[in-house]
């Protein structure tokens, strides 16, 4: 386990020193959401109706934007092959990098959510459920996205390719995240939605680092 935290600390330190990354993700998140009132008009009812969906879609796109660099930089400067040559299992390395990714992108998104809930006139009953679904959902996004980030290593056209690979896989998380918030706004029980989201996360926790490590191994075979 010490290897896990060593890598998490190093990635956090890198993120902190080259700065900008977390900041840009949050800035994208906010700007993408702010575009909607311009697109559909500032009418409070309409904004409230679409708020949960818009915030979730923007969060999903923001999380995805930063994923391209998850392994890419380490791959290019030779760090990734050295990490694969340490006495730490590669799955643990991948898990550590996903954890650091979530701490530097998923968590800041959560922090920015209240602001966007106000902008989009999200009904109060839905607010805490929105925060909760993002808290459960964004780790799943980082986990699933890590597979895509590992698969595009060494390819031509990384970023666009990445979105084509992982956005379809994000649809279940999106569906349950948004319908939980909508359910809460209409006064329904959201337990089932949250349990399914937690189930997705629990399933992704072991499977995604495993698949990601497999993808990295074949990328390093070149």
């Amino acid at each position: 386990m010490s290897g896990f935290w060593t890598i998490v600390r190093r990635d956090l330190k890198l993120a902190q020193r080259q700065g900008m990354d977390s900041y840009m993700v949050v800035a994208f998140f906010v700007i993408a959401v702010v575009l909607f009132p311009f697109g559909v008009g500032p009418e409070a009812n309409i904004l409230a109706r679409i708020s949960s969906g818009v915030i979730w879609v923007a969060a999903l796109l923001a999380a995805m934007l930063s994923l391209e660099r998850l392994f890419q930089i380490d791959f290019e400067d030779g760090s990734l092959e050295l990490m694969a040559l340490q006495p730490v299992p590669l799955e643990v390395v991948v898990m550590a990098k996903i954890t650091a990714h979530w701490l530097t992108t998923g968590l800041p998104l959560l922090v920015a959510t209240p602001l966007l809930a106000v902008f989009m006139n999200l009904p109060y009953e839905g607010f805490w459920v929105l925060v909760l679904t993002l808290a459960i959902g964004t780790p799943s996004l980082s986990l699933i996205g890590a597979i895509g980030a590992a698969l595009i290593l060494g390819s031509r056209r990384g970023g666009v390719l990445l979105s084509l690979l992982i956005l379809p896989l994000y649809i279940p998380v999106l569906i349950f995240g948004v319908s939980a918030v909508d359910g809460a706004i209409s006064g329904l029980s959201v337990k089932a939605h949250l349990l399914i989201m937690a189930g997705l996360l629990v399933a992704a926790l072991p499977l995604c680092p495993w698949a990601g490590a497999g993808a990295i191994r074949q990328a390093l075979e070149t």
Partner: peptide, 16 residues
């Protein structure tokens, strides 16, 4: 089809 080496593309796509 995103890789110069088709064998590498097949492997990555197989995982996907």
């Amino acid at each position: 089809n995103a890789f110069d080496d088709p064998a590498r593309g097949s492997k990555a796509a197989a995982i996907l």
